[in-house]
């Protein structure tokens, strides 16, 4: 898959509801429950649970204009979980993840010598998180400003529409590199709040899939 270079207004793209998005091709990605057997060492409690992975597919649109890379995620979700009002409630969430080093595993969120970088949008938060991880239990949430990362989410007709945008050329260390003409490997994840999904209890697209950022 190619992440096309299109001269579209990045400000307009920031709202996933904007008609401008109809000019960008959409790809449907199948999701499956994250395999929790791998998490036994970090949480024998979580690893023995089942029933997660309620979201089964995700529609993705991606583009860049040489300065900003935009990713639009849309998925059907009959329950809007955008606030935690009780002790047993969880919020809907979505993430896009990239390897910092070739060969990093998406399932394990990297490893000690192979970091991964992720963008995390949560329906109950104002701003996204820029996440670094080197394997399970190591993820660190960072403020998005230093990465030039923004996100917006809208709930329309029982669907979430989330747009991530990031300045391609940034100075922060330990963020994924995005260069026109280069490869960019991506994985996706969704959490269904009404199903108590959080941490590794999620739907995932599988291992990283390599894309080309059009020159």
């Amino acid at each position: 898959m190619i992440i096309k270079r299109l001269a579209l207004d990045a400000t307009a793209l920031a709202d996933g509801r904007n008609e401008i998005w109809s000019e960008v091709a959409e790809k449907e990605i199948a999701l499956s429950p994250a395999p929790l057997a791998l998490t036994n060492a970090v949480s024998p409690y979580m690893s023995r649970t089942s029933g997660h992975g309620k979201n089964e597919s995700l529609k993705v649109r991606m583009l860049h204009d040489g300065n900003v890379l935009s990713i639009r995620l849309a998925w059907k979700d009959p329950s809007k979980d955008d606030a935690i009002n009780d002790l047993d409630q969880f919020a809907d969430a979505a993430a896009v993840m990239f390897p910092m080093t070739p060969g990093a595993s998406a399932f394990s969120m990297g490893s000690p010598d192979k970091a991964v970088n992720a963008w995390l949008w949560k329906a109950d938060e104002q701003a996204p998180f820029d996440v670094m991880a080197r394997g399970y239990a190591t993820s660190a949430r960072r403020e998005p400003q230093g990465s030039g990362l923004t996100a917006s989410g809208h709930y329309v007709n029982e669907h979430w529409i989330v747009v991530f945008q990031r300045t391609m050329k940034i100075s922060r260390e330990e963020t994924v590199s995005m260069v026109p003409g280069a490869e960019l490997a991506i994985a996706f994840a969704l959490w269904e709040g009404s199903n108590n999904e959080r941490s590794a209890q999620k739907s995932v697209s599988g291992e990283f899939v390599s894309m080309t950022i059009e020159h």
Binding site: S43, S199, A200
Partner: peptide
């Protein structure tokens, strides 16, 4: 402590 075992973020 089971809470320590359970915490997926250590």
């Amino acid at each position: 402590a089971p809470c320590i075992d359970a915490c997926s973020r250590n």
